[in-house]
């Protein structure tokens, strides 16, 4: 033990007593650090640094990768875009928008919901605004051919116009960020003739 401490410069008597505790504390904390560093780092296995456009490679492992690709394709076009959201649980309540939209109203507040899909759609498509519809509102619409529909529900089983909707595949990703909640599935459709 004496030899061990002789390798550590300027260690005081008090430190000798607390050093084992410090080491244990460090290794407990390091166990957490290692876990997170590994989980975050796994994405590097699915990217090739020698290839060009690293941004796209990383983005392809994004949980909303297909939505991102769609946004790149249609952000600057006139193609009609529809976002259909059906999730209306309390956890999706958008307090901020609900507050602003109802601040001048004395009636019962109309709740507004915000899902991760809506959030990512607005983010990827910015500055273009993708209007959001409820399922009931969307049923009344007649999207023109080649329009794009983004939904949190498989609309092919919910709409009479199902035959006109062709699903754009959203495949599973190689990289799973398993420290985060698993995202809700989302569906992308192309409207055909």
């Amino acid at each position: 033990m004496k030899r061990l401490f002789s390798y550590i410069p300027s260690i005081s008597t008090l430190e000798r007593y607390i050093l084992p505790s410090l080491l244990i504390l460090f290794f407990i904390q390091f166990h957490y650090y290692k876990f997170y560093a590994q989980k975050f780092g796994e994405i590097a296995h699915y990217t090739d640094t020698s290839k060009p456009n690293m941004y796209e490679q990383i983005q392809n492992q994004h949980q909303y990768a297909e939505l991102y690709q769609l946004a790149n394709k249609y952000r600057n076009t006139n193609v009609q875009l529809f976002l259909v959201t059906t999730l209306q649980e309390r956890e999706y309540l958008d307090y901020v928008t609900t507050y602003y939209q109802n601040q001048n109203s004395n009636q019962k507040k109309t709740p507004v919901y915000l899902t991760e899909l809506k959030l990512m759609t607005n983010y990827f498509f910015y500055p273009r605004v993708v209007r959001s519809y409820s399922l009931r509102q969307f049923k009344k619409l007649k999207p023109i051919p080649n329009s794009i529909v983004i939904a949190d529900l498989d609309l092919r089983y919910s709409l009479p116009i199902q035959s006109t909707l062709v699903q754009i595949p959203t495949g599973p990703k190689q990289y799973i960020m398993n420290i985060k909640k698993v995202p809700k599935p989302y569906y992308l459709f192309n409207v055909t003739q």
Partner: peptide
């Protein structure tokens, strides 16, 4: 000032590598 290099590192790293910081 009279604390060893090893202790300084252990104290600081132990404090600053909690999951909250890393995340």
């Amino acid at each position: 000032r009279n604390i060893s290099l090893l202790s300084v590192l252990l104290i600081v790293l132990s404090f600053f590598i909690s999951p909250l910081f890393i995340f």
